[in-house]
Structure formats: structure tokens, C-alpha cells
Amino acid sequence: MENKHGKSEWPAWATETVEIAEPDARWLKKGSEEKERLTGLLSPLVVLQVEHIGSTSIPDLPAKPIIDLMGKVHSFDAIEDILSLLEPENWHYVPPHLDNRPWRRFFVKVKNNKRVAHLHLIREGDQRWTNQIQFRDRLIEDGELAKEYGELKVKLSQQYADDREKYTDAKGAFVARVLS
């Protein structure tokens, strides 16, 4: 998105490059803390459950140093109420027309103009919820599979450093193989 002077209107965090960091044992603690904070904040509304997912939830796995969390909701009807609770905590809402994933609602937590966490709200009953949990748990259980995934992530981060969407899409075949 550009303004009339050709300058980007996107915040810096929205256009960050894909960078994979060495595994960090602190990610599990940060994920647990963020999960507890979100559960306490959002469960009185409509969020039924919060899970730490993604590569930072898997011990010894290289990852983008961004804590991924997933929240289960009955519907997306309370998004405005959720946003009003998350905004003071430096969460930014990425609306579906920008996220290009109409099946979820997506929030990015920002600190020092960098992403530090993602929150993916998924409707109860959506198979994506189950798939995310199964993928995480399978990699936790199988160190060789996790190592293979880590190597793939490093390779793809170099290949698609400036294109987060292509980076994510390129992992699809591996994810599908793990889930099958």
C-alpha cells in the first residue's frame, strides 16, 4: 500500500523479512506466559481456549522469534470487543481483506516496531484447529521430523526472505505429509 508520494503506508512490522533464529529455550516460557495472559484477558468474552502453536512451541526447533498462539471462538461476532481488550497490550488487528484468510481473525503483537507474537482466532469445529495441534504435537514427539522441518525452514527463509506468504506456502507440502 502506497500513499500519493509513492511511500509505503504499511507499518515496518507488516513488511518484516523472514528471519529464522536458532532455537531459544525461553520461547516455551514466553509462549506459556502469553497463553495465560490471553486466556485471562479473553476468556470472559468468547475465547474458549488458547494454545501455543508454531515453531516456538517445539523444543530445539529454529524459528522466526515470534510466539504463535491460537484461540478457539464460537464465532467472530465479538472481534471488536476482543480488539478493544488487545489494543492496550500492543496487539494490532489485521482484517480479513488484508490477511487473505477469511477462516481466521489475525492479530499481531508489536514491540519496538517488530512482531513478537501472533494470535490466530479460529472458529470452534474448524479442522485447522485440530491440524495445528496435531502438527505441533507430532514434531514434539519426533525429533528427526522436527530437525527436517527446521532445515526446510532455514532453506525457505533464505529463498523467500522478502515474501512471507511464499515462505508459508512453501512449507505446505511438508505440513501435509506430517498430517497424513
Rank of each mutant, 00 (worst) to 15 (best):
R105Q: 13
L145A: 10
R105L: 04
D163A: 07
P102R: 07
L139W: 06
G54E: 02
R136P: 01
A146P: 00
I66Q: 02
S32Y: 07
D99C: 09
P102K: 07
K7C: 11
K111R: 13
R164G: 13
I67N: 00
L45E: 09
T168A: 15
T130M: 08
E16S: 09
T17F: 06
D163T: 06
D126A: 12
D60H: 15
S84A: 15
S8P: 00
F174E: 06
R101V: 13
S32I: 01
D162W: 06
P11L: 14
K30M: 10
L69P: 01
R136S: 02
I58G: 01
R115G: 04
V116A: 00
D77N: 13
V73F: 09
Q49V: 06
I67P: 01
L139T: 01
T17K: 14
G172K: 08
P59Y: 02
G172L: 11
K111G: 09
I133S: 02
F76W: 04
G143F: 10
S8R: 11
N100D: 13
K29R: 13
L28E: 08
A176K: 15
G125C: 04
V178E: 09
A117W: 05
Q134P: 00
V46W: 05
N131F: 10
N113D: 15
P96I: 05
I82R: 04
K155H: 14
R128Y: 11
M1A: 14
L85V: 00
G143R: 14
N112D: 13
G172E: 08
D162F: 08
K30L: 13
S32D: 12
K114F: 09
T15M: 05
I140H: 02
I20G: 01
H52S: 07
Q127N: 09
P23D: 00
I66W: 00
G125D: 05
I82N: 04
W103Q: 12
R37L: 12
D60K: 15
V94Y: 06
L156I: 11
N112T: 07
G54F: 03
E148G: 06
D24M: 03
W91H: 03
I67V: 15
L121R: 05
W129P: 03
G172V: 00
R101G: 00
E22S: 11
V73E: 04
P59H: 02
N100W: 09
Q132F: 09
H97F: 13
L69R: 05
V110G: 00
L41M: 11
K29N: 11
E165K: 13
Q159T: 15
V116C: 14
K7V: 08
K109Q: 15
A78K: 14
L48V: 08
A161M: 08
W91F: 15
L145W: 03
A146T: 02
G31Q: 04
W129R: 05
A12N: 11
L152R: 06
L179M: 07
L28N: 03
L119E: 04
E16I: 02
E148M: 11
D163Y: 04
Q158S: 10
L42H: 01
P88L: 01
V108W: 04
G54A: 06
R105D: 03
T130G: 06
L156C: 06
F135P: 01
